[in-house]
Design a binder for these strands. Structure first.
Lengths: 195, 195
DNA sequence: AAATACACTAGTCAGTTGACAAGTGAAAGC
DNA sequence: GCTTTCACTTGTCAACTGACTAGTGTATTT
């Protein structure tokens, strides 16, 4: 009973931290602002997460857990010899994940070059597995193209959703609309894995 | 004589502000940190630029002036009926610009949804013209594909360079290397405008 | 029913923030 | 040569930062 309460509070805090941090970045967000979003006292943050840094890591863990849940199994199942349609399906799911979680890409981009330790931790703990799966899935490409495909697809599939407010103001289309997501997925899939 | 000094100082400050702000974001950077980079006193920032916000705008102006210098003329020259090779050349130059100025894309991404006024100013003043040129250049595509092409190419051509430190740590390739830039330009150009 | 455990709050700390006020000194104008 | 201009520095301000300490109240254990 008390444990359940504890977990739900921690979750509420991580959720608030994640959304706050992906709006303005780690350093720009105060623990008090996060606490206010989570509707708890500021002291409670340092109670559950010793430092702001630890809270950042908890937010990262949550983010990659979400990604794994959404595309992990599909991505691992598709190897270099898989039929193109399977690959296309995984790419479509990745686009959809980025549309539903624009904070994922923002979190990665906002983590700048300034903090070596956080960056290294992020690469080793979370980024490397994803890159390995992607490499395996796209193993049909020439090996030297893999990093380019990874970053090209990563950027191409995310920016339109992660720069949401700018996108609708600029192009008039609504990046949250189902039709937009669908069209973006189709557009990219056709580029990367032609039928 | 004094005017020249004034201009070079202002430039030094804008330069420092730009590099600092694109590392950690607007709110996370202190005016004192910027002043230190520019090797001037903190008070001088408020002397030349009344507020931190004004300094941000000056940084944006400089960034888009750089872009215009690098690709503006080429982009405006290529219309919907231009031969593919011309379009390919502009895309290659855009990739190169993003490689040489990874701070450009970072600046755009770090500007989150939090500040309406800055975002609107950025769209109307700088983003809209670029989007219009791009639309015109890619006028051979179905109109409804234009926003998707814009964001897909924008993201695909930038992230590998703007996430520099993460990229070399993750993939082992050096995004600053000439060969990498060339390869990325070729890879993307072939995707977007097949020969 | 008394004792314990612990999720949680309030208050406090030194250090940092953006902006401003007052002063300095060297170049430009007369 | 005297005055004015102005790029620039120093010092100061209230407001805010992350982390810590000392508590409080309620559920669980004995």
């Amino acid at each position: 009973m008390r444990d359940k309460q504890r977990d739900s509070t921690r979750e509420k805090i991580v959720e608030a931290a994640l959304s706050a941090m992906t709006e303005t970045g780690f350093d720009a967000v105060s623990t008090r602002a996060i606490a206010q979003r989570a509707e708890v006292s500021q002291g409670l943050l340092t109670y559950h997460f010793a430092t702001k840094d630890a809270l950042w890591r908890a937010a990262a863990d949550r983010l990659f857990a979400l990604q794994d849940e959404a595309v992990g199994d599909a991505m691992q199942a598709v190897g270099p010899d898989a039929p193109p349609e399977q690959r296309r399906e995984v790419l479509r799911r990745l686009v959809r994940f980025n549309a539903e979680h624009p904070e994922f890409f923002r979190f990665l981009m906002l983590q700048g070059p300034e903090d070596d330790e956080r960056r290294t931790w992020l690469i080793e703990t979370h980024l490397m597995p994803v890159y390995t799966w992607f490499s395996n899935m796209m193993g049909n490409l020439p090996p030297q193209d893999i990093p380019h495909a990874f970053y090209a697809f990563g950027g191409a599939s995310s920016v339109i959703f992660s720069a949401q407010a700018k996108c609708s103001g600029l192009t008039g289309i609504d990046p949250k609309a189902e039709a937009t997501i669908q069209r973006h997925a189709d557009y990219l899939t056709n580029l990367m894995v032609p039928e």
